[in-house]
């Protein structure tokens, strides 16, 4: 049930991860797995997309993969 979720997909949580180190979309999705947040796959994708649009993180390619990151 959602009340038992131990991870919350919030703008602040995403911001903290991206300040710590550059991450791919897959890296971020791993941090907010549906079984831990209680969200559906579709909700996770939609909410994370909205958060990333708001944060508008910097992007760079590392090992040919696009990574997002933020500076403080």
């Amino acid at each position: 049930t959602p009340s038992s979720s131990d991870v919350q997909l919030t703008e602040e949580a995403v911001r903290r991860y991206l300040i710590r180190k550059p991450m791919t979309t897959k890296d971020l999705l791993k941090k907010f797995q549906t079984k831990r947040t209680g969200l559906s796959s579709e909700q996770t994708v939609n909410v994370l997309a909205q958060i990333l649009k708001r944060l508008n993180p910097e992007r760079k390619n590392i090992n040919d993969k696009m990574h997002f990151y933020l500076t403080e």
């Binding site: 791919t24 979309t25 999705l29 796959s41 996770t44 994708v45 997309a49 990333l52």
Partner: peptide, 20 residues
């Protein structure tokens, strides 16, 4: 599963590509 993770990553990137 990893294939579901791949699908989610692809869907997320598609959403963001419209924006970028």
């Amino acid at each position: 599963s990893s294939s579901e993770a791949d699908e989610m990553a692809a869907a997320l990137e598609a959403e963001l590509n419209d924006f970028m």
